[in-house]
């Protein structure tokens, strides 16, 4: 009879975005943006209405630099956060 006293498994997490890397900073989505130290919760991804994903910090910087009307860096459509 085998009794299980504890199972300590290993998993990796992923954002499960379509692309591998952020179109703005060219860093991996599962990594983090250049300004961040830790990936994951600390450096989240955000999707636009156009379904393109970016590091939150990257797109925020981008959006702030684009006046008056920001566009998605990938498809040039007007940028809107996916609701």
């Amino acid at each position: 009879m085998v009794r299980n006293l504890g199972w300590h498994p290993v998993a990796s997490w992923t954002w499960d975005a379509q692309d591998e890397t952020c179109g703005i900073c060219r860093m991996a989505f599962d990594g983090c943006c250049p300004d961040c130290k830790f990936p994951g919760d600390d450096c989240p991804l955000i999707w636009g209405a156009c379904n393109h994903a970016f590091h939150l910090h990257c797109i925020l910087k981008w959006v702030n630099s684009q006046t008056p009307q920001p566009h998605c860096p990938m498809c040039r459509r007007e940028w809107q956060f996916k609701g």
């Binding site: 299980n4 006293l5 504890g6 199972w7 300590h8 498994p9 290993v10 998993a11 990796s12 997490w13 992923t14 991996a28 599962d30 990594g31 830790f38 990936p39 994951g40």
Partner: peptide
């Protein structure tokens, strides 16, 4: 009895 380790595999 389950305790998982979740890694950021990129690093």
């Amino acid at each position: 009895l389950l305790d998982a380790t979740i890694i950021s595999s990129n690093f």
